[in-house]
Write a protein that binds this DNA or RNA. Structure first.
Lengths: 264, 264
DNA sequence: CACTATTTGTCCGTATGTATG
DNA sequence: TCATACATACGGACAAATAGT
């Protein structure tokens, strides 16, 4: 990929004033996210020469120091290599086979997925859910549920690709940081006597909020793939609400169907 | 909601070190976001007394000035009211969304979908596909395939919600505007002697390009739900590539699973 | 080999924003 | 409100490595 074509691509963002100092996010970090996103999703491919600090500064209206800082952070993560006199080269190899999860029989496959990925626990607490959730879970005003916030990363590159947020009707003792490393949430629920009878899932897309964007190294409003899951126990009572947000450049859902003559 | 219970709830965030200065986001803004989120989603309800600057500062380990700045920004947005000597009161009224989205789960599969929706044909042509597609379809340099571009609308409100783009290895005579109104593409293929044996599907998300955004009445770069489908004939040869882009506010993919004891 | 243009690395000074006490 | 410390962002200046003539 030529440097001029990269500039042309990036210039669109520049001219759209994608980078702004209105928010509290530093400029160097915004540029960092923008570049990282394009490297990860293969828009800027392996071996490409990035534009020089000078050029990037001009296209985005930033000083060289600011651009340098953004590129240095990419270099720390080994996504690019920087050499005096030679410029900055992309050293991340885009993999056309990102993490994929089958859609059918998802429960088992989340477990197999667990073996090739890492999980980082951001938050575990017994807390009062927002009003909407409270109502759906059938909670009174002061009652609490167990909140889990986790980020999943690829095992090899340690790239964050999923942001999980869940509310569960169970005491916090059900989950512990240690237990979550070796078991899925569903397993821990069953060990606590909660047997699921039905699961409803909804797949959609939504823009990244700032906190999710920060954790997944994306820019705000980047498109995310979303899976919302509601789990019901034997009595049909809603006991668990899970909201998964995925970086679509890394994670996708896949399914394959064999068709016989009878099928449409 | 009592001040102590609010503190108790917030304290969990504090003790989890939800607020950190590792990232580039300023502390006052992190606290601001945390509070705003809980007010907007109803976790902290209308009329509640927020903890004092002093108390918040202690729970999160922040100085009073930093807390003050966060609360001031909430007050600018009229989410809270601050009075000397009286403290800070929540003035935002949480309103539960009255409508449970009727569109959710509107469509269980593409076949039945055809009956409750309208289709608008944007383009039908026998043309040379781009290089990438050509390669996948196994086409020589000058060979053509059949390109279809369609938009799908809801039957009642005539809202465009899906943008279909497909390349098919078949003469253009297979499809006609009239035939497409009454049959699915798959049906028309079978009538032409092409029997599918396998389908691969990939679900992802991507930003709306300007042309798609225009057709779906969305802004550029809005998140879209994407379904990419590849269909193979009896010999395992790729004969059809379909790219569906959905407005996630109108169309979502829903599934429900009954679980028995054997399942994980 | 020198000479030059390019590009990154390093350093300075300055102004503003953030955070503490 | 003030003093202090550190991070962010800018502009400028110069050094050091690279590549081409």
């Amino acid at each position: 990929m030529t440097k001029t074509s990269i500039i042309a691509t990036l210039k669109q963002y520049g001219s759209q004033q994608e980078l702004t100092w209105e928010g509290p996010t530093p400029l160097y970090h915004q540029l960092y996210s923008l570049l990282k996103e394009q490297i990860i999703d293969g828009t800027i491919s392996y071996g490409s020469q990035l534009p020089t600090e000078q050029e990037l500064g001009e296209t985005f209206g930033l000083s060289r120091i600011t651009v340098k800082r953004a590129m240095d952070e990419l270099s720390v993560e080994k996504l690019v290599e920087r050499r005096r006199g030679r410029g900055t080269t992309v050293t991340y190899k885009y993999k056309p086979k990102p993490v994929k999860a089958p859609l059918v029989g998802m429960l088992e496959n989340i477990e197999t997925m667990g073996r090739h990925t890492l999980t980082r626990l951001l938050d575990i607490a017994e807390a009062i859910p927002p009003a909407e959730i409270r109502e759906e879970l059938g909670l009174q005003d002061g009652q609490t549920a167990c909140r889990l916030v986790r980020v999943r990363l690829t095992e090899d590159e340690h790239l964050p690709f999923a942001y999980y947020f869940s509310w569960t009707l169970t005491p916090i003792s059900t989950f512990s940081e240690e237990a979550l490393k070796h078991n899925t949430r569903i397993e821990l629920l069953r060990q606590n006597g909660i047997v699921l009878s039905r699961i409803d899932q909804l797949i959609s897309a939504e823009p990244a909020t700032s906190d999710v964007a920060r954790e997944l190294d994306l820019r705000e409003n980047s498109p995310l793939l979303v899976l919302a899951r509601r789990s019901y126990d034997k009595n049909g009572k809603l006991v668990d609400m899970l909201h998964c947000r995925y970086n679509p450049a890394i994670f996708q859902y896949q399914m394959s169907m064999e068709l016989n003559e009878e099928n449409h």
